[in-house]
Amino acid sequence: MAVIYFLLSVSVIMGTLFLLVFLWNLRSGQYEDDYTPSIRILFEDKKPSNSENFSSKT
């Protein structure tokens, strides 16, 4: 049962690590704009030549 000392220590240390990662994210401003990235991800990276195809369509 002595392994519980080890397991508990590891779990608390891991939890602390996650907490620190969260605080680091918060400080670096990752949560400041939680809306724009959701739109940005939907933009397609098209080559400029596509616009010519488009204008000839009509």
Partner: peptide, 27 residues
């Protein structure tokens, strides 16, 4: 609207001196 974001984040194509532009939509 989202097209605003798209256009404003492509400013570097309109002015070569602009390195990048980032939109914060809600603000």
């Amino acid at each position: 609207c989202s097209s605003c974001i798209w256009l404003l984040e492509n400013l570097h194509k309109l002015n070569k001196g602009i390195q990048y532009s980032r939109v914060d939509f809600l603000k």
